[in-house]
Design a protein around this nucleic acid. Structure first.
Ligand code: NAD
Ligand code: NAD
Lengths: 222, 222
DNA sequence: TCATCTATGTGAAAGCCTTCACAAAATAGG
DNA sequence: CCTATTTTGTGAAGGCTTTCACATAGATGA
């Protein structure tokens, strides 16, 4: 069944809604661990600090999953969100740049538990190529196009310096891959059918800096 | 002069505008390295894949920095954005949880260059307490409230497991700090005057998963 | 000095997202 | 079976953000 898949006919779902689906999924794991069979939009909202109306509206884009007067069935809703997000399967991932941040990500077991399996590593440092990280032998970046083309790998995590990130991405695109998680602080140029998500920690620190300096407050006393 | 500081009188600046200021700042570094004296909203927009109108509108919230017919003075605008963001100074930061991701952040020299200096580390692992990371001796988490209270540290990066993140945050709030960058995949509860930014890598991977499965495309051929 | 060109700054319009508010559906309790 | 209660699902309203479009101001060059 493809009842939740977007098609040209259906309304475009906003990026914020998709990001919140991740939060709902995470919240449902908490609720499930608590042993609850059902959960209300109010409870879900509380866990992720959102509004109940927002939760209901987001879910309503994909169908009617709840029961009036009762709430949503926890196990069922979790499975349905997993299906919408496409995380009801395993994604094989390659990681390029086995340095500080790259190594930390490879060592992070939680990703694999969530279905995101890092199965291939690339680097250009001769001392790293051939070495073993958590059971994966680091490949030479030179071979990235051929090794990714037609492989089972569909996502790539970029952990190389900003100065070379675009070159790496060009190769990834050449290999036909369409999903990139980028840690380098540069805006990557890719064709329109390739998806890039950026992790920009400096930006988050700068936001905190702005908030402190401007004495923002969600409930400022006038 | 405080001409760029938000007050109750001025219009609230949106979060997206502030995040884009970070991008403009980064773009201006590129333009500066190229040796340009001035830059147009069109060029800045191109570097970060935004629209020229967006760039002009964002900047206009804080003043008139450009010259019609010419563009914006690069050095000047960069300094002005730095001042708005509060990154025209050094921020001292504490990091809690010197594990995979925590160690990677401590080793990342670029943060210090940008004025974000990690100057204190905390952990609860006896094998880590007292050990030296990049010149910083790891402190016992037990002493976090007293060591942060009244110190020169104003931001904290949380790199502990999700199960203990809230306890750590409670102590940080107790110590009077108001800015937290959180890597743990939990929604932290804090008072209204404390700022939390979350880095949620799983959420980004899930977004990529959704995009691939739903065959999204910015320019889909109908 | 004047005409032409370029690019800003900004109201207004358009578009998008969130919140409101309530009918409808189902439960729960007697 | 009936009433009171709960909570969903959703149009409509409201609010926020982006884009449009153009008057304006300054640059450039003859
Ligand atoms: N470490 C952090 O905390 C942190 C924080 C924010 C952003 N980043 C960004 O993440 C990226 C990596 O940071 P890091 O601290 O891990 O750096 P690093 O120097 O430790 O690691 C970079 C790795 O990339 C490899 N590499 C270099 N050129 C390559 C190429 N052409 N092909 C393949 N591999 C190549 C290097 O050999 C090295 O192993 C950088 O863009 C950095 O700006 C890092
Ligand atoms: N490593 C990654 O790539 C990655 C990716 C996404 C999210 N995260 C999140 O970042 C956090 C850290 O991940 P990690 O892989 O570095 O884990 P880790 O286990 O390597 O490190 C956690 C560190 O926190 C310390 N710690 C535990 N309890 C503590 C306490 N009460 N007080 C102080 N220190 C304490 C541990 O001793 C350890 O040094 C986790 O919440 C994880 O979910 C990590």
């Amino acid at each position: 069944m493809d009842e939740f898949r977007e098609t040209e006919l259906k309304k475009r779902i906003s990026e914020s809604t998709i990001r919140r689906l991740s939060l709902y999924h995470r919240a449902l794991e908490i609720v499930e661990d608590n042993g609850s069979e059902t959960v209300s939009s109010k409870e879900l909202a509380k866990i992720e600090k959102l509004t109940p109306a927002q939760v209901r509206k987001d879910l309503s884009f994909f169908g009617s999953f709840g029961t009036r007067g009762l709430g949503y069935p926890v196990k069922d809703l979790k499975a349905k969100i997993a299906r919408i997000l496409g995380i009801d399967r395993v994604w094989n991932i390659a990681l390029v740049g086995v340095g500080n941040i790259g190594s930390a990500l490879v060592s992070y077991k939680e990703f694999a538990r969530q279905g995101f399996k890092i199965v291939k590593l690339f680097d250009n440092d001769q001392r790293k190529i051939g070495s073993n990280h958590k059971g994966i032998v680091v490949s030479d970046i030179k071979n990235i196009v051929s090794e990714l083309s037609g492989s089972e790998i569909e996502m790539v995590v970029i952990c190389v310096p900003g100065s070379v990130a675009q070159f790496v991405v060009d190769d990834i695109v050449k290999a036909g891959l369409r999903a990139i998680l980028n840690f380098a602080p540069v805006n990557l140029k890719v064709p329109d059918d390739v998806f890039v998500r950026n992790e920009n920690m400096a930006m988050e620190l700068e936001y905190l800096s702005y908030a402190l300096v401007n004495n923002h407050s969600k409930n400022r006393v006038k």
